[in-house]
Simulated scan of single mutants.
Amino acid sequence: MPTHSAATLATPRAPLTVASNDTPSPAADEVLVRVRAVAINPVDWVIQGTGPVTYRWLRTPAVLGSDLAGEVVAVGADVTRFRVGERVFGLATGTDRGRDPLREGAFQEYSTLLERLTSPMPDDLGDEQAAVLPLGLSTAACALFQPQHLGLRMPGTPSSATAPGVVVVWGGSTSVGMNAIQLARAAGYDVVSTASAKNAQTVRALGAETVVDHRSPTAVADLVSAIDGRAVVGAVALGAGSTDACLDVMSRTGGARLAMASTPLSLDALAGRRRLFPAMLPVFTRIGLATLRSTLRARRLGIRAAFVWGSSLRDDEMGPRLWREVVPRLLADGSLRPLPAPLVVGEGLGAVQGALDRQRAGVSAQKVVVRL
Rank of each mutant, 00 (worst) to 15 (best):
A355R: 08
L281G: 05
D357W: 00
Q48R: 15
A235Q: 12
M1Q: 05
D213F: 05
A92I: 10
I287M: 14
L64N: 08
V220Y: 01
A143G: 14
A187W: 00
G151S: 14
L281P: 00
L117A: 12
V53R: 13
E209W: 03
Q48Y: 09
S160W: 06
A74T: 02
D228F: 00
M1T: 04
V224P: 01
G188P: 04
F284A: 13
A306W: 00
G234Y: 12
R116A: 13
L150A: 03
A141R: 02
Y55C: 05
G165F: 00
G94I: 09
A341Y: 02
L206W: 01
S5Q: 15
P320G: 07
P278Y: 09
L372S: 09
M154Q: 13
P122R: 03
A361D: 15
M178D: 06
H149C: 12
P101H: 09
V79S: 06
V212Y: 12
A237Y: 00
S266D: 14
P2N: 11
R103W: 05
R83I: 03
R286F: 02
S175M: 08
V166S: 10
V167G: 06
I181L: 05
L343D: 14
R13D: 11
M318R: 08
V132I: 13
D244V: 05
G156C: 07
V88T: 11
G207L: 01
T23R: 15
H4I: 00
T93H: 11
A351H: 12
V326F: 11
P15T: 03
A140H: 07
V344C: 07
L349D: 02
K198P: 00
T3W: 06
G334I: 04
A235I: 08
T162G: 06
P134N: 12
A106V: 07
V84R: 13
P24W: 07
V249Q: 01
V345H: 10
D123Y: 02
F284T: 11
L322A: 10
F284Q: 08
L322I: 06
D67M: 08
M280S: 15
A341V: 08
I47S: 11
Q146M: 12
S159H: 05
V73A: 00
R34N: 14
V169K: 00
L330E: 03
P278T: 11
A69D: 04
V211G: 02
G241V: 06
S225L: 09
D22A: 15
V224D: 00
A208C: 02
